[in-house]
Write a protein that binds this DNA or RNA. Structure first.
Lengths: 231, 231
DNA sequence: TTTAATTATTGTATTTTCGACAATTATTTA
DNA sequence: TAAATAATTGTCGAAAATACAATAATTAAA
């Protein structure tokens, strides 16, 4: 085992990559930015930044999210860390990936202070990305899918009021398989949803009832009984 | 947004903390070491080390595991990263936690090159640890439990040949609830186990049959049919 | 040698969930 | 008013989960 000076270790930086997932037109999409500087100029990339010396990782992720979207108080999930010594051409940078789910419509206008161009890309059609971002993206999408199975996080992507079909289509897209309507509805019977009187408008067929996720009821349920969300 | 020099970021270090879980006497245990240097001299801690400048994170975790136990080729799982600016008194050190499962008996003798003292501590009785290791430990144990539900990783902790009751007791301890024997056996019917002719010895009651996990059959099953391990 | 104690193993019956599919309903557009 | 479209509800058999009972194999004590 070779010995190196203690101070020789303090020569790395770390960054946070902050993946945003949203849902529109029946597809789960990830927000990508087009880099406007070297290295990887003009490549699509996951939004991220170096972590400041006095920042905790979560803080950095929240900062990036805020810069990017104007949103705060969004549930952030830490995904994985990546640390290949050569992953960044300018030095040793270990990155920690986070992801969050947002309603794309909530802030479509903003997001300009960051990069020249941003784009919401369906997670099944991710292009070649800068750095090792394809690896990070793939890993994080897998984690997202895992969490979709055991936590009711999809409601952060859906509009506040959604139809049961929209809800179902989200899962169909995520797991790339079609589901039986009737059975889906039975399966979600245990999820506390609030049925509104309001109905879909402007559709050329029988309009669907609108629902929203009853977050508080859900929390109570989890605390009270030994309930585990499962899809 | 304040601007700092690019090079000012390259002043941090990374460490990897490598949690080992094993199973003995009906309890899941974590390996702790007693620190023999400042800071936190004499505190119990999770084994870990700084990551070398040319090492990937996984490599570092494997190195630590090897130093500690002599074992290589052990499945390592990345857990979470922790980066509070003040978590290490001697500088900014972000740590990535990993965990692995081992058979405690396999290497009891070794493990001396590391620290003065090591100890296998039941995960339900973790003492006060150095640094933020209690947070890391708690988070990682939760992740372990999550994985126990969806991956057949418990067999890395069980002896090569185990009884169904031992298997059951592992889950009972992990989730702190007792299970019905008959129903447990029905539930695990889908897990490919190899039944041996051999039986338990030296027990003062009807000896149980010994089983081992049929890893290859499991892999084939996963590849062939759309099978998801679930407990 | 027999019996009690202990734990392993298997079985049964009931309830709950899953999966495939059919039937009915509400709305828009032609 | 009918056709088209998708929403919603219902049925039935299969499979899985749950509670609990019965039987088997071994040791230790009587």
């Amino acid at each position: 085992m070779y010995r190196i000076n203690f101070s020789d270790f303090f020569t790395s930086a770390f960054s946070v990559d902050c993946m945003l997932f949203g849902y529109s037109q029946g597809q789960i999409k990830a927000l990508l930015i087009k880099r406007a500087m070297e290295p990887y100029n003009n490549f699509w990339a996951i939004p991220g930044d170096l972590v400041y010396p006095d920042e905790d990782l979560d803080e950095a992720a929240n900062r990036i999210l805020k810069d990017l979207t104007g949103l705060s108080d969004v549930g952030l999930h830490q995904a994985q860390s990546f640390g290949h010594p050569k992953r960044h051409p300018q030095g040793r940078v270990v990155t920690v990936s986070y992801f969050a789910m947002v309603r794309i419509e909530d802030f479509n206008a903003k997001a300009s202070s960051w990069a020249d161009e941003i784009s919401w890309v369906p997670i099944h059609d991710i292009p070649v990305l800068a750095f090792d971002h394809n690896l990070i993206m793939a890993t994080t999408i897998e984690l997202l899918k895992q969490k979709l199975r055991v936590e009711p996080i999809c409601f952060d992507m859906l509009p506040d009021r959604f139809t049961l079909s929209e809800f179902q289509q989200l899962y169909e897209y995520a797991f790339n398989q079609s589901l039986d309507k009737a059975n889906f509805r039975k399966k979600i019977k245990h999820i506390p949803l609030l049925a509104h009187d309001e109905k879909q408008k402007m559709v050329k067929h029988r309009p669907a009832k609108l629902f929203s996720f009853a977050k508080e009821d859900y929390k109570t349920k989890v605390e009270t009984i030994d309930y585990q969300f499962k899809m």
